[in-house]
Design a protein around this nucleic acid. Structure first.
Lengths: 198, 198
DNA sequence: CCACTAAACGGACTGCAGTCCGTTTATATT
DNA sequence: AATATAAACGGACTGCAGTCCGTTTAGTGG
């Protein structure tokens, strides 16, 4: 019992070695540069490894796969966006009434997802699996629906609101159907109103 | 003008050579067998080519890519399903009132999509691009919403109803959230009622 | 039946994702 | 400072998707 203070703490989980930290940053920076210079298709794992000055094995140990690397890139902007939702100014952040927050959520999320759709599709399934993107939005929408006193199966209704904000669907609406972002956003607001009514 | 009957007709578009037809069938059968025996992961283009007794180049000329081959496999069951919607018995087929048809559509589509989710995800983007799966469902739901006298932006509302029926979303609800098909179908019906109300 | 040609064929080749395993190194311990 | 060791490293290797191009063949016109 006298050793209890030596039990592993949650904050101890990742004592990252210094060379590992240096390489992690070098890899992410190299990826960012390659995307900026030549687009996502140019981001081959060999190219990233060469530019970052690390071996290929290092890339895969850290990020698991090309998709995992892309998901890690997404995480930066995703984290910023989540911070705006959690603690930014209303109506996206707290302070506005729940319906205003919900509408701001949909509008902002559609814009952001479309802006990053290249990266999101390159991240593929990894974007959903790891990296709390999906579960964060699901939690938030469920919370807002609860605040609004919505009746019915809230997890399922939340999914119905989130599904049209997924990247492939937005991209199809813009590219194939030729819809404007404005029209998509207005349509989502209409859907939100209809789903919310009690 | 006397030659007008010799102008190319729509039905002339694909005068498929006999060896090409034979190989096409052999390829699709080989694919089906491989999937049945060892699952989709075992369907490599080399394996299909070997089993079908054709060269790899033949595979790619006919189907363009592995995803294209998977999409072609999907087309069989998709065509059957579309026939049920177009001319099968009500409430899925014509004859029932539009709301009943809409509810039957969602229920049936969710079941079918989930049943084929392996193949759909293997078909990837090709499932949406070619092969009228997406556009058929979009047309049908728009038509039913029109019949129901729904107000608002019908193409966007139709997309909102179709989005939660996409394979990745259904699969996530079942695999990650642990929802039953029944609950998903009931939830979709609830969403449909709320979106339809005028 | 023969010659011609456009289409189909098929397998060697390339490029990239992902794995494996022997080598190096950061850090803790004494 | 020397040693131990667990973790990180990195590049050669494998497997598969997709391409290329010289060869074969089905269909046609004489």
């Amino acid at each position: 019992m006298s050793d209890i203070h030596q039990l592993p703490l949650l904050s101890d989980v990742a004592p990252e070695r210094s060379d590992a930290a240096r390489n992690r940053v070098a890899i992410l920076r190299a990826t960012e540069e390659l995307i900026a210079e030549s687009g996502i298709h140019a981001v081959t794992m060999d190219a990233v490894a060469a530019r970052a000055g690390v071996g290929k094995g290092t890339l895969f140990r850290r990020f698991g796969s090309r998709e995992g690397l892309m998901a890690a890139m997404l995480n930066f902007s995703e984290a910023e966006w989540q911070a705006e939702v959690i603690s930014g100014p209303p109506p996206l952040g707290p302070g506005a009434d729940p319906m205003s927050r919900l509408l701001a959520f949909g509008r902002s999320r559609a814009e952001r997802t479309l802006r990053h759709s290249d990266l999101i599709s390159a991240a593929g399934a990894a974007a959903n699996r790891s990296y709390a993107a999906y579960s964060f939005t699901a939690m938030h929408v469920r919370y807002l629906l609860g605040e609004l006193g919505v009746s019915g199966d809230i997890p399922v209704l939340a999914t119905a609101l989130l599904a049209p904000l997924e990247a492939p669907i937005l991209a199809h609406q813009v590219d194939a159907d030729g819809l404007s972002l404005q029209r998509i956003q207005d349509g989502w607001a209409e859907v939100a109103h209809r789903i919310v009514q009690r």
